[in-house]
């Protein structure tokens, strides 16, 4: 399991005031790493492969304006898969410049884009669209947890980066 992902990507130097403060929050940082493992590399991935999850996370990190986090997830995509399938995910899912053509994958990408960029606009119809594209109840929850986690993680990194300048 990868550790201290948020601290590394936020560039928190050891011995800095923020690093010292976060010693009191070591359990939160450990559980954040464990959450990363649970949504990116779960033991039971269901209908969402580890490679697809990494590609979706890279895409969300890009929407969230976090280049370092997007690079982290592109590296995870490389680790998770190789060959044409992984290259296709990198080209069509892991970048905000593109949309995949295949129906199920397009519905998944559309949903993570919505949940990341305009969660307030989400309605019952968006869940129905995932079902219509072939996702079952468990995959819909898995996809939602992945999207929600990346949004949490990117905000912790953005917030910590911002705080470091004033400590």
């Amino acid at each position: 399991m990868q550790t201290d992902i948020i601290e590394r990507l936020a560039g928190i130097g050891s011995g800095s005031p923020l690093a010292e403060a976060l010693k009191a929050r070591a359990e939160i940082m450990r559980l954040s790493d464990a959450s990363h493992e649970a949504v990116l590399r779960p033991k039971t991935p269901g209908g969402l492969s580890h490679a697809l999850r990494a590609a979706l996370a890279a895409r969300m990190a890009a929407w969230l304006g976090n280049d370092a986090l997007a690079a982290h997830y592109r590296a995870l995509l490389q680790e998770a898969g190789s060959g044409q399938a992984a290259e296709d995910l990198a080209a069509t899912v892991a970048t905000t410049e593109s949309l995949p053509a295949e129906r199920r994958l397009a519905a998944i990408v559309r949903h993570v884009d919505l949940v990341t960029r305009e969660p307030r606009e989400a309605t019952r119809a968006d869940i129905e669209a995932l079902r219509a594209a072939g996702l079952d109840e468990a995959d819909i929850v898995r996809l939602s947890e992945l999207a929600a986690f990346v949004n949490y993680q990117a905000r912790v990194i953005a917030g910590f980066r911002c705080l470091q300048d004033v400590m």
């Binding site: 005031p17 923020l18 929050r25 968006d126 929850v141 949490y152 912790v156 705080l163």
Partner: peptide, 28 residues
Amino acid sequence: LSALEMADLVLSAAIFGWANRLMHTLGE
């Protein structure tokens, strides 16, 4: 706010970036 208090604010707002994206998208 102290360093720890500021960090706690980041965490409490960010965890609702997670919770809201479940509660608001999976039900009403």
